[in-house]
Amino acid sequence: MDQLLEVLRDMKPGTLIDENSQLIEGGILDSLDVMNLSVELNDEFDIEITPLDILPENFATPTTIYNMIKKLQEED
């Protein structure tokens, strides 16, 4: 989770982000940010996020992103 929070904070400097921050509803991430983040996560966690994973519920909070990463790592 710490690694993920670091990625998010690097992407949005100056924005306070914790495990339960509302990323989409809170306006921290827009659709372009989600795309940039997905590519970054693929690289950082060696996973393969597909277009079917790009859903608002998967990117709602750092916790939901973390759960998605775990799921993709297990599937691989």
Partner: peptide
């Protein structure tokens, strides 16, 4: 993905984060 890794290695970190979009 390969292109992005390459840019990250040799380019500016902030800009490389915006490269996918």
């Amino acid at each position: 993905k390969k292109f992005n890794t390459f840019v990250k290695k040799f380019g500016n970190d902030y800009l490389s984060k915006l490269l996918p979009a």
